[in-house]
């Protein structure tokens, strides 16, 4: 048996996000060809150290949130582009293993010696705007002059273009910052909100798809090629399970049956954006997309966006 070392920085308590990765590890470990030495919760490596560790060959595979590495691996930015993510999220097949977009991503990753075995079948439900009573955001217009906590480059740009101040504070201080009004709102995936109990301090969720991310299963092309056939088969089989259940379980089951009801129970007002507002987001987000296209190259960038929007082939 070959031992493969894998990591994820997410704790099991973020159960929507780690359901897929934990299941993958369990299945891979059960195979005869591979045993797994797995460390979640950032026990072995913090989020920022995972990619360097993978490249150095210290670990064999990693689960990583795409939004953490979009500026190091620009092609993964496709999972976070405003104006694109909604369409991508609604159509799980478009980034599924074997799809043209999936292959395109891997072609780009290969240039950096990386291989993505799966993107959990889809990206996760987009990140929305979560705000407090004092700084409630119920429309794009409301964003003007608000202090919004963001992390990723994509969300920062959009927030600023709508007249908001993009604030960066550590995630451990977000709870208190919302309570004290240090920030008015945060752009976040529902998993983060539930995981940090932020719903206790929040009053409104405005479901404008600001950005999104997926959780990819990555290894290096070198490591992948060095694996024997039996090991590859075991890996692929477990990855296929991850592909089928990763995003699906989070988006369609845990979010719907547990997390959104918890949000409702906490008394948050849920505001859906109008068609007009979505169109405005799309318009403003053009600048973000242009910047991204410039980074990945015009041909690749435009093709990836077309595929994500269902226009390409």
């Amino acid at each position: 048996e070959t031992t493969l070392t894998g990591v994820s920085y997410l704790p099991p308590s973020y159960k929507a996000l780690s359901y897929g990765s934990a299941g993958f590890v369990e299945r891979l470990n059960e195979s005869d060809a591979v045993s797994v030495d797995y460390y979640d919760s950032g026990k072995l490596l913090k989020a920022d150290e995972q990619l360097p560790a993978l490249r150095a060959g210290t670990i064999d595979f990693m689960f990583h949130t795409t939004s953490y590495v979009t500026r190091s691996i620009p092609i993964l930015g496709i999972t976070g582009l405003p104006g694109v993510v909604e369409a991508l999220y609604e159509n799980p097949g478009r980034i599924a293993k074997g799809s043209p977009l999936f292959e395109l991503i891997n072609e780009e990753l290969a240039k950096e010696d990386l291989y993505m075995a799966s993107m959990m079948g889809n990206i996760l439900e987009p990140e929305y705007l979560w705000s407090t009573e004092g700084g409630a955001v119920r429309s794009i217009g409301d964003m003007e002059g608000k202090k919004i906590r963001v992390v990723s480059f994509e969300a920062t740009k959009v927030a600023e273009d709508f007249g908001a101040a993009a604030v960066r504070i550590p995630s451990s201080e977000l709870y208190l910052a919302l309570q004290r009004g240090t920030v008015d709102a945060a752009v976040a995936n529902i998993s983060t909100v539930i995981g940090r109990s932020l719903q206790e301090q929040l009053d409104v969720v405005y479901k404008l798809p600001m950005t999104a991310y997926g959780i990819g299963l990555f290894t290096t092309t070198q490591r992948w090629e060095r694996l024997g056939d039996a090991e590859k088969a075991a890996f692929d089989e477990a990855a296929a399970w991850f592909e089928e259940n990763g995003a699906a379980q989070a988006n369609d089951t845990i979010y719907v049956d547990e997390y959104w009801p918890m949000i409702e129970e906490a008394g948050l007002e849920v505001v859906e954006p109008s068609e007009e507002e979505l169109a405005r987001l799309d318009e403003v987000a053009q600048a973000v997309r242009d910047a991204w296209i410039e980074e990945v190259g015009a041909e690749v960038g435009e093709r990836a966006i077309a595929l994500a929007l269902g226009n390409g082939s």
Binding site: P11, S13, S172, L176, I194, R196
Partner: peptide, 18 residues
Amino acid sequence: PPSVPFIIYGAVSGVSVG
């Protein structure tokens, strides 16, 4: 409170930080 260890425990266990 405020307490960083409680925030971390909250994230790991799912218990309300408040």
